[in-house]
């Protein structure tokens, strides 16, 4: 039987990718953020997951405004990162897991979700940066990727509850998968930040701490805010917390926080990394 071992939640700021490309992990500006990944590396080394299911938002690499899906699930044999406009493309390919992708698609559609399905798909920094952070250095990524993109770009965005329920449906699909893979779930983006408008540079540590405090033990607390509440609280890009909320929804077992690192600022962003363990609750 497959097993969902836990979740890794992290910011995905493009500047982190630039810092990786330039080898700045030990630089004083960057070190406090990168050090937050030590417990994640230990966890992934110990648990050795086979599959990563990643909830993220595309910022204009695979999807543009000509066709903008609210939810999209990858079902490709392989995914690649490409140049997003600033000349960085991470070379390691991301192997896919088509059979599990289609199983997830089947199950979430049964749960009344209607995702776009993608057999050819590039993934942007919102997947590439977390993968570089989680599995640095290795010649090939040791996990297969299932990307699940959520529209956090063009309003109306799906509600926090809708994203959480999508995550729950994905979690049910993972539980019913008959393979023996170990699966880790990723949620990327956030925390508070805003890139545009007169409020550019907005940071809200109170809201960020509210999310960090409740992510493991009471994720439904994050569902009390509608999307524009979240935009007001977290900033117009801070709404990427929707990806975290969806990923948290996919953890159905007994969930415990193993590590949390909140570091402000990275570029314009309140950056955070959280590691949650998920243990299957055994019924007698």
């Amino acid at each position: 039987m497959s097993e969902v071992i836990g979740g890794v939640f992290t910011s995905h700021v493009p500047a982190i990718g630039s810092a990786i490309a330039r080898g700045l992990q030990q630089d004083p500006y960057w070190k406090p953020f990168f050090d937050g990944f030590d417990p994640v590396h230990e966890f992934l080394h110990r648990e050795k997951p086979d599959v990563a299911v990643v909830f993220y938002n595309d910022h204009g690499l695979n999807f543009f405004l000509d066709k903008m899906p609210t939810f999209a699930i990858g079902a490709a044999t392989e995914y690649r990162h490409e140049d997003e406009g600033w000349g960085i493309s991470f070379p390691r390919p991301y192997p896919g897991h088509q059979a599990l992708s289609w199983h997830i698609i089947e199950e979430v559609v049964k749960s009344d979700f209607d995702p776009v399905t993608c057999q050819a798909m590039t993934v942007d920094h919102a997947v590439a940066v977390p993968f570089e952070l989680a599995w640095p250095g290795a010649e090939e990524f040791p996990v297969k990727l299932i990307p699940i993109a959520i529209n956090t770009v063009q309003h109306p965005l799906p509600s926090a509850r809708r994203c959480y329920n999508l995550g729950k449906a994905v979690g049910r699909a993972l539980e019913s998968w008959q393979g023996d893979e170990k699966i880790v779930v990723l949620g990327t983006g956030g925390l508070s930040h805003q890139l545009e408008g007169g409020r550019a540079g907005h940071i809200n540590s109170d809201y960020d701490r509210f999310c960090l405090r409740n992510l493991a033990r009471d994720p439904e607390a994050l569902l009390q805010h509608d999307v524009l509440d979240i935009v007001e609280l977290a900033g117009s890009q801070g709404v990427e917390i929707l990806n975290w909320i969806a990923a948290r929804g996919a953890l159905h077992g007994s969930v415990r926080e193993l590590a949390s690192n909140y570091h402000v600022p990275i570029s314009n962003t309140a950056a955070a990394t959280v590691l949650l363990e998920n243990r299957v609750t055994v019924s007698a």
Partner: peptide
């Protein structure tokens, strides 16, 4: 400087 006015690092490891 406005961003740095929020500067903080909070780390917890179980």
């Amino acid at each position: 400087a406005g961003l740095m006015s929020h500067a903080v690092t909070e780390r917890h490891v179980a």
